[in-house]
C-alpha cells in the first residue's frame, strides 16, 4: 500500500507514491536518483547517509520518507551552486584532500556543515568528537578534520 508524500528536496518540491516502509535514503536514491547520499551500514552507525532535515543533520537511513511530509531536505547534491561552484565545505575537502575513496564523503560534508552551523568556533578536538557518528575506512580522519577546520573558517568568512 503506498501513500502520497510531498517534500522539498534541494529547494524543489517533489511528490511521489511511496510505501510507508520506504526509508528516506531509499526514496532519495531510488525514486529521485539522488545517489550522492550513501548507505554504508544497517545500524545507524556509519553516517554516510547524512542529509539535512530542516537544516539539521540526520541519518536518512533511520527515517521513513513518509515522516518527512512537508519538510525541507538538503542532500549533498544541493550544496554546490547552480553553475557548479563548490560549497566552501566541499572546496575545503578538495583542497585538504579530505577523501580517498569518497564513500563516506557526502555524509562527512553534510555533518561538517552542521558542525559549522552549531559550533562555528569548533576546534580540532570538538570536530573529532562531533564526528562520532561518521565512519571513514580510508583516511584515518586527519585530512577530514583539517578540511572541516578550514571549511568552517571559509563558511564563517562567507557569513
Amino acid at each position: 500500500m503506498s501513500t502520497k508524500v510531498s517534500m522539498n528536496v534541494n529547494g524543489k518540491p517533489v511528490l511521489a507514491d511511496v510505501e510507508p516502509r520506504t526509508l528516506l535514503v531509499q526514496y532519495l536514491r531510488e525514486h529521485l536518483g539522488l545517489t550522492g547520499t550513501h548507505v554504508g551500514c544497517d545500524t545507524s552507525q556509519c553516517g554516510c547517509c547524512n542529509v539535512h532535515l530542516n537544516g539539521e543533520a540526520v541519518k536518512s537511513c533511520t527515517l521513513f520518507a513518509i515522516q518527512c511530509e512537508g519538510q525541507d531536505i538538503t542532500t549533498i547534491e544541493g550544496l554546490a551552486e547552480e553553475d557548479g561552484t563548490l560549497h566552501p565545505m566541499q572546496q575545503a575537502f578538495w583542497e585538504h584532500h579530505g577523501l580517498q575513496c569518497g564513500f563516506c564523503t557526502p555524509g562527512m560534508v553534510m555533518v561538517a556543515c552542521d558542525i559549522a552551523r552549531r559550533r562555528p568556533d569548533a576546534d580540532e578536538k570538538t570536530i573529532r568528537h562531533e564526528l562520532e557518528g561518521n565512519i571513514c575506512r580510508c583516511t584515518g580522519y586527519q585530512h577530514i578534520v583539517e578540511a572541516i577546520e578550514s571549511g568552517i573558517k571559509a563558511m564563517n568568512a562567507k557569513g
Partner: peptide, 9 residues
C-alpha cells in the same frame, strides 16, 4: 547519547 545526528531525532 548517540551522536549529533541521532540527537537531532
Amino acid at each position: 547519547i548517540g551522536d549529533p545526528s541521532v540527537r537531532h531525532r
